[in-house]
Design a binder for these strands. Structure first.
Length: 1008
RNA sequence: GCGGGCGUGGCGGAACUGGCAGACGCGCGGGACUUAGGAUCCCGUGGCCGCAAGGCCGUGCAGGUUCAACUCCUGUCGCCCGCACCA
């Protein structure tokens, strides 16, 4: 490193210059105002950039320091929009920057990268609106974001920067897609070893392994193409149901023809192509994932979303449901986020039960249902199937029923908005004309169809027990179906009046085969399932709400899916050595608004039609000159963000998506050799729940990603872990969500909101609408263009500088709380920096002015401040750390600080206000950046006083205070208290009942 | 409806494991320096009573546990976030 400037840049103040507050000033030349802050900050930002101060090398690189422990701090990378940075971005980014700067000073190798989540719908839509190619607008937005982030002085290692739209990057996104394409989930196999030393059951394996097992005869193929273990134990319990051990239609691999074999393999892939009902948004011209649909409307734009059958690429995330759920226990995440994920996964235990159909329906003799309440089977008085259930189509095929047909058609054509609105309204439904038999009672019961039963969950059919299920009860009441009580409410409620879904005792539940009478719910469930399994009428079953991840989008601005098709519609992967499949240029990339999905890339006809050799398909799969058609769907926005944290570890690698060494070091959690060998304790501040799962040490971002991004990333990471490509089962060890920064807005009495620039503040502090004079009340809302209450970070930096901005956002309140921005309050942080500056720098000359000798009170307070800041930073309690810094300056201003004290103060200020800290550090004569100087240690002796003041309470109320020696025991304190004249006076003439002494804390005297 | 979280001065917030409620900042009041101040500095600032000393009240509301409750328990009201016919 070169010698940094020791003189501050001389700002232009030749004439009366505007101050931060815009008035005319004759302020001294070295006053810390907006102009000087700007000069200092730009000077240091240029210096850091020129010197590569925050470049962090990887293991194996020349200047890598292997003896230091590692710490990987990740921000959720931004989606660069044309609007530029929002004040919400720097909130999380400042927090991580403080952590990183602190860790560096504590001797860690710190990985702190930044990049761009740049594919996606908004850029495409903006491009459509303006007619400019999304690549151009996106690059421009990235440049602006980068400029803004650099202006905050964040200590990113910019050498690792990339965007998801970079060919070097999406090449590997496509490579991961192919990894998923070329693997299957083996429920019998065990995962690689977790950091806890154990393996987990159920693991992704290469398709090649599946072929070996099929060819070797270990696996056979069932009637419906499912895999069955040759050892007779069915992999799919359903296959064993009904047919007993002798499974009909079990075939060996060599008995299958080419087409059948392909179908079996393709149906096992982790990435598979299948017809499914999708969320189709006609207005956006694309399919959306479940988490992109809010209340039946698109998350972006709020357009209606329809259900539509479509062939789509999907990921078998459901096969990981169990591990995604149980591994949540390994990570140090907010409770609310873990709860959200586990509810999204939605595990429920119950049984699948076959009800014999008591009507002649061709090809169907049983109706299979899923229930979590098998214990209520005796109370089943009717059945309900979803309108899309095959049984309904069968019923319609047998006999014309106008009412039934009308109902089914209506349900099919309903958008999700309408169907969900139905949830609020009455139950609807139609009798199908079919009956089945209750296996418990033998009673003949009707089969209805109703849209409150969803085809996508369970088997799309339920056994209705109106006595003990709220929804069934409502339906039964409406259609006058019988309600039979089979669980006695201990409180004696009447199920004809109100359904009872709590725990109680079985009743009316006895047959020749089984009796549940007198059993509690849990016991009755067990008994029922045992009976069902014994009589082959049903099996224990676990269901999940989680659906497979739909991965096809009909958009332009996304990663192409590296697949081609032959004439017969068979798909083939593109060889890894032919990646990336580059996104072709399109003359016209506007969407085709249509009820019938049209991928945009189909317009690139020259690109779509190619040969196997040109596309890069292995000639083992297809002859080189075979005519093929490229996949025209693209990947969703969540593709690139599902693994970007891995790329940062080794961003320039052209051989692998991340080198094994870089992954092991940065993601491994036990990066330091000494730590790995157990010869060193983890450094203080690193003790989290973590290293059970390892991964990124700290990940900060918004809670809106609690299910989408954070679940998808976990899934990809687990597949890569199972396939041996990465070394940890979880990507993010500690997760933290910053709260939303809101803003004030003004509300009329009718609750409508007035834009900020149409509001006047009256002299008495009340607010009125300028146009009407109507009185308004201030409310806290999301920042929004509509309310004109959006704060632009550039404006704040221009007014106060980046150090003030950083301090203010961290000082507003707890990091995870939602807080209102109040520009007025920023002045407090600005004044703090100004006072700190004035305390040590002569405002006329710019020279340091230091006290010749240390004031003991200042010294003591400095040690306490160091201890407080050092403890608060790892807790992410920046607001209280900053308060402590302010207190120190307030106390030290009058006596002044010595050179030695200023050094320590600059060091503890550095994580928060790095520019001023560097400036002071340089003024102190240092030639190296403050960034890697050791964080000061407090002297423990300075942290305790010889005497402490403790309160004396009488009857629990503080009446007096006394001084006692630190460490005095109960007896000593009681003696001091009782001999104190004031205390004697207070208790004179009263009867003592009890004296409670908490050493070092307080004394409470209880009178009789 | 279900799940999670939160209610503390005029405002943002602090208070570690039950032990002095209101740290720190904004705002406000007073003063200093000033031709001037929307700059800067100093003092004060939860409410009520009192000249003062001091007293009483006070962490959404109502109870409870405790020598002691912002903190724990029960009930209740309000706000925010997530999920929402998942059988």
């Amino acid at each position: 490193m070169s010698i940094p400037p020791t003189q501050p840049p001389q700002p232009d103040r030749s004439s009366a210059a505007p101050t931060a507050q815009g008035g005319i000033t004759d302020a001294p030349p070295f006053r810390y105002d907006a102009k000087l802050a700007d000069a200092i900050e730009l000077r240091w930002q240029q210096h850091w950039e020129a010197e590569g101060t925050f470049h962090q090398s990887n293991p194996g690189e020349p200047d890598f320091e292997p003896d230091r422990p590692k710490y990987y701090v990740l921000d959720m990378f931004p989606y660069p929009s044309g609007a530029g940075l929002h004040v919400g971005h720097p909130e999380g980014y400042t927090a991580t920057d403080i952590i990183c700067r602190h860790k560096r000073m504590k001797g860690f190798n710190v990985l702190h990268p930044m990049g761009w989540d740049a594919f996606g719908l908004p850029a495409e839509q903006y491009a459509i609106a303006t007619g400019v190619h999304p690549a151009i607008t996106t690059r421009k937005a990235i440049d602006n974001f980068r400029r803004q982030l650099k202006r905050f002085g964040f200590s990113y290692d910019w050498s690792r920067e990339f965007g998801t739209i970079d060919e070097d990057y999406y090449k590997w996104t496509q490579w991961i897609f192919l990894k998923l394409y070329d693997s299957w989930f083996d429920p019998q196999a065990e995962s690689p070893v977790y950091p806890d030393g154990k393996r987990r059951r159920g693991c992704a394996r290469p398709i090649a392994d599946l072929l070996v097992q099929l060819e070797g005869g270990d696996l056979r193929v069932g009637a419906e193409g499912e895999l069955v273990h040759a050892g007779s134990a069915a992999m799919n319990p359903l296959a064993a149901m009904g047919g007993g051990a002798e499974v009909i239609g079990l075939r060996r691999w060599h008995e299958l023809d080419q087409k059948q074999r392909r179908a079996v393999i393709d149906s096992q892939r982790m990435a598979y192509l299948d017809q499914m009902t999708v969320n189709w948004c006609p207005a956006l011209g694309t399919v959306l994932a479940n988490d992109e649909v809010i209340d039946g409307r698109s998350e972006r734009g709020g357009h209606p979303v329809m259900r539509k059958p479509l062939k789509q690429w999907q990921f078998r995330i459901t096969s990981y449901a169990d591990r995604l759920l149980s591994d949540l226990q390994l990570v140090d995440w907010p409770e609310s986020t873990r709860t959200q994920q586990s509810e999204w996964i939605g595990r429920s235990e119950g049984a699948e039960i076959d009800f014999e159909i008591d009507s002649a329906v061709s090809g169907m003799n049983a109706l299979r249902v899923f229930t979590t309440r098998p214990d209520t089977i005796f109370g089943t008085t009717y059945m309900v199937v979803a309108p899309e259930h095959p049984l309904v189509a069968a019923a319609l095929g047998m006999k014309h029923d106008a009412a039934l047909k009308a109902y089914v058609d209506a349900a099919r054509n309903k958008s999700d908005v309408d169907r969900m609105a139905g949830a609020e309204k009455d139950k609807t439904g139609v009798f199908t004309g079919l009956y089945c038999l209750n296996p418990a009672t033998g009673a003949k019961i009707p089969i209805w169809t109703a849209d409150y039963v969803l085809m996508g969950y369970g088997t799309g059919a339920i056994m209705a027990v109106p006595a003990h299920d709220e929804r069934d009860w409502e339906f039964a009441k409406k259609f006058a179906l019988p309600i039979v009580e089979v669980i006695k409410d201990p409180k004696g409620g009447d199920v004809q009046e109100k359904c009872f879904s709590g725990d109680g005792v079985g009743a009316n539940s006895s047959s020749v085969e089984v009796s549940l009478n007198g059993l509690g719910v849990a016991e009755a469930k067990k008994t029922t399932i045992a009976w069902l399994e014994k009589t082959s009428r049903g099996v224990r079953k676990v269901n999940f709400k989680l659906r497979d991840w739909v991965f096809s989008r009909q958009r332009y601005w996304g990663e192409p899916i590296p697949i081609v098709f032959d004439d017969a519609g068979n798909h083939y992967p593109i060889g890894a050595d032919h990646l990336p499949v580059k996104l072709p240029d399109l003359a016209d990339y506007s969407p085709v608004e249509s009820d019938d999905p049209q991928p945009l890339l189909a317009k690139a006809t020259g690109w779509v039609h190619t040969t196997a050799a040109q596309a890069g398909v292995s000639n083992e799969l297809l002859p080189p000159n075979a005519i093929v058609r490229r996949e025209t769907n693209t990947m969703p926005g969540s593709a690139g963000s599902s693994w970007y944290f891995l790329r940062y570890c080794d961003a320039k690698n052209s051989k692998r998506f991340v080198s094994r060494e870089a992954d092991a070091y940065w993601m491994g959690g036990l990066g330091t050799p000494a730590l790995r060998a157990g010869s060193m304790n983890p450094p203080p501040g690193s003790e989290s729940r973590g290293t059970q799962a390892a991964g990124v040490d700290l990940y900060i971002g918004g809670s809106e990603h609690a299910v989408g991004h954070l679940l998808y990333s976990r899934f990809w990471h687990k597949v890569l872990f199972d396939l041996g490509e990465v070394c940890t089962p979880e990507p993010f060890n500690k997760l933290f969500h910053q709260g939303m920064i809101t803003s004030y807005a003004y509300q009329r009495p009718d609750k409508t909101i007035v834009p900020m620039d149409e509001v006047n503040e009256a002299a008495d502090g009340r607010f009125v609408e300028t146009a009407t004079g109507v009185a308004l009340s201030p409310v806290v809302t999301k920042m929004s263009k509509r309310y004109k209450n959006v704060i632009n970070p550039d404006d704040i930096i221009a007014q106060f500088g980046a150090d003030t901005f950083r301090l203010y956002e961290m000082y507003m309140g707890p990091l995870d709380a939602s807080k209102p921005w109040n520009t007025k309050d920023t002045i407090g942080c600005f004044r703090f920096l100004q006072r700190a500056w004035r305390m040590t720098v002569d405002e006329q000359t710019g020279e340091l002015k230091l006290a010749p000798a240390a004031n003991p009170d200042v010294e003591k307070q400095l040690h306490r401040t160091i201890a407080k800041v050092d403890a608060d930073i790892p807790r992410l309690a920046f607001n209280t750390a900053i308060a402590a810094l302010i207190e120190f300056v307030n106390l030290a201003t009058a006596p002044g600080v010595t050179r030695d004290q200023l050094e320590r103060f600059a060091l503890i200020l550095a994580p928060f206000a790095p520019h001023m800290a560097e400036e002071l550090w340089a003024k102190l004569g240092h030639t190296e950046s403050i960034a890697y100087e050791p964080f000061p240690q407090p002297d423990p002796k300075q942290l305790v006083d010889r005497e402490v003041e403790i309160p004396i309470s009488i009857q629990g109320k503080v009446k007096h205070k006394i001084m006692v020696p630190t460490g005095a025991d109960k007896a000593a304190i009681e003696k001091i208290a009782m001999s104190d004249p004031k205390v004697r006076e207070l208790i004179a003439g009263k009867t003592l009942s009890k004296i409670i002494v908490v050493p070092g804390k307080m004394v409470n005297i209880v009178l009789g």
